[in-house]
């Protein structure tokens, strides 16, 4: 039981009156815009919700937890999320 994009599209259908198919297309497009921005290395900052940030990770030594073998984790880029104060308050119910 998790919130999915279909439920969000349903809400777009209810509130804006686009067809269901169109509502899904619009939500898919919105998600694609967010991905494109992050892919190009640009953070996505949503006031009242939080920040999606692209971080560069350096190469580091790690270990395969299953075999205990040493391994080199290559340099990579990851996405992190910082919750906004407003969202944090909302989740904590105050």
């Amino acid at each position: 039981m998790a919130l999915t994009k279909h439920e969000i599209a349903e809400q777009v259908f209810n509130e804006l009156g686009f067809s269901k198919k169109r509502s899904i297309e619009i939500i898919e497009s919105l998600i694609e815009q967010i991905k494109k921005s992050l892919e190009s290395g640009e953070d996505v900052l949503i006031s009242g919700f939080g920040k999606f940030r692209v971080k560069e990770k350096k190469e580091r030594k790690g270990r395969n937890p299953a075999t205990g073998e040493d391994a080199i984790l290559p340099a990579r880029r990851i996405v992190t999320f910082n919750c906004s104060g407003k969202l944090r308050k909302k989740i904590n119910g105050s």
Binding site: L3, E7, I8, Q11, V12, E15, L16, I26, I27, L30, I46, G48, F49, L87, K90, I91
Partner: peptide
């Protein structure tokens, strides 16, 4: 649409 998207997740 953007408002619905983030409000719903929140």
């Amino acid at each position: 649409v953007v408002q619905i998207f983030f409000d719903h997740m929140a």
